[in-house]
């Protein structure tokens, strides 16, 4: 059975991320999964908002 290395959270970037690295018996990388454990849903909650307000709403997608 190989090893599993979890990097959580990924740091020094905007947003949330997690990396799962699976090593084989020899210690070589077998597979890597990059996951994004966040969602806010601007795509949905901007619906119904006045268009002139959107610059002040969607600027909060990323404030970095």
């Amino acid at each position: 059975m190989g090893r599993r290395i979890t990097i959580d959270p990924i740091t020094r970037l905007e947003g949330h991320g997690k990396i799962e690295i699976f090593l084989d018996d020899a210690g070589a990388v077998e597979n890597v999964y990059f996951q994004i454990p966040e969602l806010r849903g601007f795509e949905k909650f901007c619906e119904g908002r006045p268009v002139e307000e959107l610059p002040r709403i969607v600027s909060r997608i990323c404030g970095v």
Binding site: L39, R40, G41, E43, K44, F45, E47, G48, R49
Partner: peptide
């Protein structure tokens, strides 16, 4: 929290 105006499943479906 503007998403509280929407149903959770509507958000996932849209996105």
């Amino acid at each position: 929290a503007l998403a509280n105006f929407k149903e959770r499943d509507e958000v996932l479906k849209r996105v």
